[in-house]
């Protein structure tokens, strides 16, 4: 159990999303950087699909109300206990009575905190993810607030609980860590790989050239629904109406004003704007960890490359899982 003393900028409960109900108009939601959440879950022995906290830019102050094991992945928002930095990408034993606080945003912009057993909130349409606009799922359909109590699912004792020195004042951890499956370094401009969008060939040649040659700045009005970009204005040659059809994670659509938007976890199920490009699955996390104000640069890849990258990433996650379980068995 955790108690919330400060909520942070935006802290929501997310799992890997509410799939199966898009045809009924329910958006997928879920972790905007799914790979970081999956690894946080693996590190504490959870199913990859379990719900954790998605922490945006400024983290929440949480008091730990029972001995438990957590893992923090994603962007480095400087998690700490008693001013001692908490290591990321590792399981950490945190004793009852400790207080988890966060400094500033060092790399990325979203951290994931998983707890052994998972957070206990009711599943709504098969998922614990928070759908903010509809007030559905997660913790009462909203971000956490001061005074909330977050319960942990009942679970058999975690192997790490028995070995850590529980008298240790702050926390204890292991000597190994998972390596992030993608690059978190704060580069000046991040490269995002894309496939041609459904309406790619309907854009002017000038727009297509500019799309790949120039970079785009992430606008401050970017959120879990989509990242608004500012850069060269993009123009579609034909102006005929596009009938509403499915849009997906990473779709780059271009509304009438010519500024592209990358659709993310809280995107609508369907849309009618022209779509110039499609961010490949493995680079969704790169977008999700880009702060407003930072720059993105698009790079074209082939369908074959995108598929290989997808499959390789799944294999990477599986190998992190098997080596973590191997380590935990040795405990």
């Amino acid at each position: 159990m955790f108690k919330v003393w400060k909520p942070g900028f935006l802290t929501t409960i997310q799992d890997l999303g509410r799939t199966g109900f898009q045809k009924d108009g329910f958006i997928v939601s879920g972790a905007i950087d799914p790979f970081s959440l999956r690894i946080a879950n693996i590190l504490v022995g959870n199913s990859e699909q379990e719900a954790g906290l998605e922490i945006t830019l400024q983290g929440p102050t949480l008091s730990v109300e029972e001995d438990t094991v957590i893992a923090i992945t994603g962007g480095d928002l400087t998690p700490m206990i008693q001013n001692n930095p908490l290591p990321m990408w590792r399981p950490i034993f945190v004793p009852k009575g400790s207080l988890i606080e966060w400094g500033g945003c060092k790399t990325g912009c979203r951290a994931y905190l998983s707890v052994a057993g998972g957070l206990s909130v009711p599943k709504v349409l098969g998922s614990k993810s928070t759908y903010l606009r509809a007030g559905i799922g997660g913790f009462e359909g909203r971000g956490i607030k001061k005074g909330d109590t977050l319960f942990i699912e009942e679970k058999p004792e975690h192997p790490l609980l028995s070995v850590f020195d529980k008298d240790y004042a702050d926390f204890s951890t292991v000597s190994w860590q998972a390596s992030p499956p993608y690059d978190f370094a704060n580069k000046k401009t991040k490269t995002v790989r894309v496939l041609p969008g459904v309406h790619y060939s309907q854009f002017t040649n000038e727009s297509l050239d500019a799309f790949f040659q120039e970079s785009f700045q992430v606008h401050t009005q970017s959120d879990r629904m989509g990242y608004r970009l500012h850069g060269p204005l993009l123009e579609r040659r034909q102006k005929d109406e596009i009938l509403s059809e499915a849009v997906t994670l990473g779709t780059v659509q271009v509304p009438a004003d010519g500024n592209p938007v990358i659709l993310l976890a809280d995107r609508q199920t369907t849309g009618g704007y022209p779509r110039i490009a499609q961010v490949i699955s493995v680079d969704i996390s790169v977008v999700a960890q880009t702060k407003p104000g930072e720059q993105l640069h698009f790079k074209a890849v082939t369908w074959g490359e995108a598929e290989s990258l997808y499959v390789d990433r799944q294999i990477d996650v599986h190998s992190i899982k098997s080596s973590t379980y191997e380590k935990l068995r040795q405990v």
């Binding site: 199966g20 045809k23 009938l243 509403s244 059809e245 499915a246 199920t269 369907t270 598929e307 799944q314």
Partner: peptide, 21 residues
């Protein structure tokens, strides 16, 4: 197959390439 989403004149199917492969 994960799910499908109908449009006015189209239908989009979502799938997991890893499962299919």
């Amino acid at each position: 197959m994960i799910e499908y989403v109908p449009g006015f004149t189209s239908l989009t199917v979502y799938y997991d390439p890893f499962m299919l492969r």
